[in-house]
Design a binder for these strands. Sequence first.
DNA 1: ATATTAAACTACTTTATAAGTATGTAAATG
DNA 2: CATTTACATACTTATAAAGTAGTTTAATAT
Lengths: 135, 135
Amino acid sequence: MMISTRGRYALRVMIDLAENYDGKYIPMKDVALRQDISLKYLERILPALTKNGLIVGVHGKGGGYKLVRHPDEYTVGEILRLTEGNLSPVACLAHDADICDKAKECRTLNMWQGFQKIANEYFDGITIADLMKKE
Amino acid sequence: MMISTRGRYALRVMIDLAENYDGKYIPMKDVALRQDISLKYLERILPALTKNGLIVGVHGKGGGYKLVRHPDEYTVGEILRLTEGNLSPVACLAHDADICDKAKECRTLNMWQGFQKIANEYFDGITIADLMKKE
DNA sequence: ATATTAAACTACTTTATAAGTATGTAAATG
DNA sequence: CATTTACATACTTATAAAGTAGTTTAATAT
């Protein structure tokens, strides 16, 4: 599978934060409950988003998380790349893959790269705002 | 990862059979050697291709495998779908996935389906002939 | 016929990754 | 200072990918 629960859950969190935004910080406990996802698991995924400045978290009472941009300024592509590594269809193109010594003679490398390009373009063309529930 | 070694190896076998075609049957032992892939593992992957009539295998001396169509009549999409199941980016769309009870309210289902469509179209637009070494 | 070659089948093992849990620490507020 | 919530780390479990081993069946050449 190309997109695991990690990336899917991250997206759901972002959408949830967007849809339930009311100016205040939203505790992840609430999101976990609404989305029916383990709080602890979410807490392991969120650092990828906070460290890269997509959301801010504040500690303590009244704390929680909040988006820092308008929902239409987050692309799905950026969220998935941060949580899933890159959007590679094959191991050869993964972010941490060692350069294949057969790359020169590889018949399919080009095809995989072309696909990766398409995947990035597709997901970069969709924003969180696009995914929010319409009234 | 969306495409595992299963699908990648199947593609390499098909390309190898196409490039080394000389009218005779080609033993998988030779392909395994050329491609540096375990013979035993290849033998586990091939049934997906023989059972669906993409290649024929004959037993015994002088036996081996052979393509039944011209290389430009095999799409990469068809080979990957047979070996990998369907080309689903997420578990929800996998061939054997049980219908999600949250599908109605899912904000992202549409997006995944759209991506799956694009993936299929991309790989259906490439044939084995396109991947063969050019003289 | 029979030895040889190679596909086809079945069951098993190993390895890797995904997914989730548990426990504890740090920061903020009432 | 008690409570709440983010943040950090280590651990466990589940699932799937990847690969092996052994056996059987079918074809050919001698």
